[in-house]
């Protein structure tokens, strides 16, 4: 009997308080959009901020409030977009998977340096130090500031140049913001042609510093049957919507054929390694 009294006393207190709280919960109930947690569930949860919001939770809230589209998550892509659209009860537009792409293939073997760099720099310091040691003022410095920023292990430095693995890349944009050269851009995953050079210099200075840089000769533009290639600022530019991926430009390019790649070949030539 000695044990009964305390048990009943404390248990009774608990019951009374519990009941009071239950009543209070009803009175002070906050109406929360019950779709928010469901959207958070289908989001990847990387909190990378690629959508432009503080994290997956903030994005889910914005979607529910109608402040954001359902297809803003670059990581989840169209899969996630259609799931969110289902929750929100709207149609999801097709979202093309985009990937980051480094517009430089000037590896140490083909691009010359202006000075010898000693010490452990990162891209930003190197860029400030007389514009970097690379002869080309547009080329990838290869210190891997973008690699450090990548949360998805999608970028690696190969022979002095950053390479993005399109399979792992989620297009969160962290590397694009990080690159002091501004030579990483976001392109459609399925883009057949891509120009792997960012140099706006004329032909001669490019030839002096890099064996594979685009000189803006325009041969690719002439050979292209679908009219997808134009020359802008001494650099060829491919209109992804017109390119059919015939690969003629690649054959024609006098600069080591690395400049304009057909998607399938691109993967063979540049095996993306983690």
């Amino acid at each position: 009997m000695d044990i009964l009294l305390p048990v009943v006393a404390i248990g009774g207190m608990g019951l009374i308080f519990g009941a009071l709280l239950a009543v209070a919960a009803k009175i002070f109930a906050v109406e929360k959009d019950e779709r928010i947690p469901r959207i958070v569930d289908v989001l990847p949860g990387a909190n990378c901020g690629g959508c432009g919001f503080a994290g997956c939770g903030a994005y889910a809230e914005a979607v529910c409030k109608g402040e954001a589209e359902v297809n803003c998550c670059p990581v989840g892509g169209s899969d996630t977009a259609s799931k969110i659209a289902e929750i929100m009860g709207v149609e999801a537009g097709d979202t093309e998977k985009m990937v980051a792409f480094v517009k430089c293939v000037g590896k140490t073997s083909v691009a010359t340096n202006r000075y010898i760099n000693e010490g452990n720099l990162d891209c930003h310091t190197a860029h400030r130090l007389g514009g970097g040691m690379k002869g080309c003022a547009f080329g990838c410095l290869g210190f891997g500031s973008c690699v450090l920023k990548c949360q998805f292990d999608a970028i690696s430095i190969e022979d002095g140049v950053a390479i993005v693995d399109p399979e792992k890349c989620t297009n969160c944009g962290a590397c694009i913001k990080e690159c002091p050269r501004g030579i990483i851009e976001s392109i459609p995953y399925s883009a057949k042609g891509r120009v792997a050079c960012a140099s706006k210099e004329k032909g001669k200075p490019v030839m002096a510093v890099c064996k594979v840089g685009c000189i803006g000769c325009g041969l690719c533009a002439k050979i292209c049957e679908s009219g997808a290639i134009t020359i802008e600022n001494n650099l060829s530019k491919i209109d992804a919507s017109k390119c059919i991926g015939c690969g003629k430009c690649t054959e024609k390019c006098p600069r080591g054929a690395l400049q304009i790649d057909v998607a399938d070949e691109f993967k063979i030539k540049e095996p993306a390694q983690a």
């Binding site: 009071l20 209070a24 002070f28 906050v30």
Partner: peptide, 20 residues
């Protein structure tokens, strides 16, 4: 134990009140 119980309930209550 009894006091902690009381305090916990009160805090829960304050939390609900503030959230609302």
């Amino acid at each position: 134990i009894a006091f902690i119980l009381v305090i916990a309930v009160l805090v829960q209550f304050v939390e609900m009140f503030l959230q609302k």
